[in-house]
Structure formats: structure tokens, C-alpha cells
Measured scan of single mutants.
Amino acid sequence: SLSVDNKKFWATVESSEHSFEVPIYAETLDEALELAEWQYVPAGFEVTRVRPCVAP
């Protein structure tokens, strides 16, 4: 099958004044980091952490 098993990760994104967490959907932690950097670094943010979303 061609289905992709995307998992939810939380990326911590920082600017000079703010820090916030955004959801990233990817297959692996490395891919989540790449996606977060691709989305947020060009906008002037720094991705400081990516972690798996742990269900309660």
C-alpha cells in the first residue's frame, strides 16, 4: 500500500522574543526536524527542539 504512517511531533520554534511549539507530521524524528527547519528557518525562526508527541 502507499499509505504513509505519519506521526505527530512537537517542534519548539524560537524567535528573538518568543518561543512556541508547533505540531509537525512526519514519519521519523529526522524528517520532522527537516520539515520544521524548512518551514520556519526562512521566516527567521530557530528550531531548537523536536520531540515525539506522547499520547496521554
Rank of each mutant, 00 (worst) to 15 (best):
E37N: 09
E14Y: 08
A11Y: 02
W10V: 08
Y25A: 03
E14D: 05
E31R: 13
A26K: 00
E17R: 08
E46Y: 15
V41D: 03
R49E: 14
E21K: 05
E21L: 07
E34Q: 10
L33Q: 09
Y25H: 04
F45C: 06
H18K: 11
T48K: 09
V22Y: 06
R51C: 07
V13M: 05
Y25K: 03
L33I: 13
A11D: 00
A11F: 07
Y40M: 03
E14Q: 11
E21H: 07
L35A: 06
E34Y: 14
P56D: 11
W10D: 00
T48C: 04
C53P: 04
A55Q: 11
V47H: 05
V54S: 12
P23G: 06
E34W: 13
P23V: 15
C53R: 01
R51I: 08
S15L: 05
R49F: 15
G44L: 03
P42S: 09
A55P: 12
P52W: 10
E21A: 04
S15W: 06
G44T: 00
T28E: 02
V13P: 00
V13N: 00
S3P: 08
A26S: 03
D30F: 09
S16R: 11
E37Y: 14
H18A: 11
S16E: 12
K7N: 08
A11C: 10
P23E: 13
H18V: 14
V4L: 08
A36Q: 03
F20Y: 08
F9H: 02
W38V: 11
S19D: 03
Y40C: 05
L35R: 11
E31G: 06
V54K: 09
W38F: 13
A55S: 12
A36F: 04
A55R: 10
D30G: 10
D5S: 14
N6V: 15
K7R: 07
F45G: 03
F45M: 06
L35S: 05
F45E: 02
D30L: 11
S15M: 08
G44F: 02
S3Q: 13
E14C: 07
V41Y: 05
V54T: 12
E17I: 07
E14P: 01
D5N: 14
R49G: 15
R49L: 15
L33P: 00
R49V: 14
V22D: 02
D5W: 11
T28K: 03
S16P: 09
G44A: 03
Q39I: 15
F20P: 00
T48R: 05
E46K: 15
W10E: 00
V54N: 13
K7L: 09
L29Q: 07
S3D: 10
T28S: 13
P42E: 07
P52R: 06
S15R: 10
F9M: 00
I24K: 00
V50R: 00
N6L: 14
T48D: 04
E27G: 14
V54Q: 09
I24M: 03
L29E: 06
E37F: 11
S1R: 05
F20H: 03
H18C: 15
P52V: 10
T28V: 02
W38K: 15
K8P: 05
V22G: 01
S16G: 10
T12M: 08
E17A: 05
V4E: 09
K8W: 15
E17W: 10
T28F: 03
G44W: 03
D5H: 04
E31M: 11
T28N: 10
Q39M: 15
E37H: 09
A43G: 07
Y40I: 04
A43P: 05
V41L: 12
F20D: 01
L29C: 15
A32C: 06
K8D: 02
E34D: 07
L29K: 05
D30M: 11
D5K: 15
A32H: 00
R49C: 13
L2D: 09
F45T: 02
V4D: 06
F9T: 00
V47W: 04
V54H: 09
F20S: 02
P42I: 07
E31I: 05
W10A: 03
V4W: 08
V41I: 07
A32K: 02
W10L: 08
A43S: 08
T48G: 02
W10I: 12
E37A: 11
V41R: 09
E31W: 04
E27N: 11
F45I: 02
S1T: 10
A32R: 01
E17C: 09
E14L: 09
P23R: 05
Y25F: 10
A55N: 12
T12H: 06
A26F: 01
K7M: 08
F20E: 02
T28A: 02
E31A: 12
P42V: 07
S1K: 07
A55M: 11
K8S: 05
R51E: 12
E46G: 04
P52I: 11
T48H: 04
Y25D: 04
L33E: 04
P52E: 15
